[in-house]
Design a protein around this nucleic acid. Structure first.
Lengths: 101, 101
DNA sequence: CGAATTTGTAAGCCTTGACTTACCAATAAT
DNA sequence: ATTATTGGTAAGTCAAGGCTTACAAATTCG
């Protein structure tokens, strides 16, 4: 799963709010929509984007659909920034050594 | 500096390409544009967004402007996902304990 | 000063996408 | 079977923004 779609998914405030809401635990579409200032279809559409991006999972329970944070997808994003941080600092250190030497 | 603008800034592929290019070291607008399939004004506009988001810094050197990764802004993003990861896992562990107990 | 270099900005085009309402499908309950 | 609950999908509207070309400002060099 590429980063591309994850960055795009998390860029929209409403969609990130859905994602952060799921951080506290699983929830149905209706429950999520009840806490947000947008319509239920809007939430449903956001969940589809998050799911396609690999950031949430869907589990059918009767007529309801329970959404949860996808830990694998979340870890990818955490790793991206951990690595970015390390590489940026390495490059910076190298530039200092070059100037000194 | 809020997360909002940083997520939005990194969501656009071209803009993230600019940011990742800067990870390897500072560069001028023209140098960045030379490596990307968009015009120089486009790169300039992306840099403005990245700067306003606190992800890059600008330093004037004569007629050139050197852009660099803003380590503070980058750390904010890294910390965001580190924290998110921890909190999501905590919530998950709690849910397991509740079910078991 | 006048020409060249480097970059930001303005105007305009055009696609993308977030949101709403309306509708349909699927499961559950009486 | 009929009704209620839950949620995905289609169609349409509207604003946001990425990109380009054209232009202007600032610095450097001869």
């Amino acid at each position: 799963m590429a980063y591309e779609s994850k960055f795009e998914a998390l860029a929209v405030p409403t969609r990130r709010a859905v994602f952060e809401r799921l951080k506290g635990g699983p929830a149905s579409v209706g429950a999520l929509a009840a806490d947000l200032p947008v319509s239920r279809p809007a939430v449903s559409q956001h969940l589809k984007v998050l799911k396609d991006a690999g950031l949430v999972t869907e589990q059918r329970e009767g007529v309801k659909r329970i959404y949860r944070v996808d830990h694998d997808g979340l870890r990818e994003m955490r790793d991206y920034f951990d690595r970015f941080w390390g590489e940026a600092l390495d490059a910076y250190k190298r530039s200092l050594e070059t100037k000194d030497g």
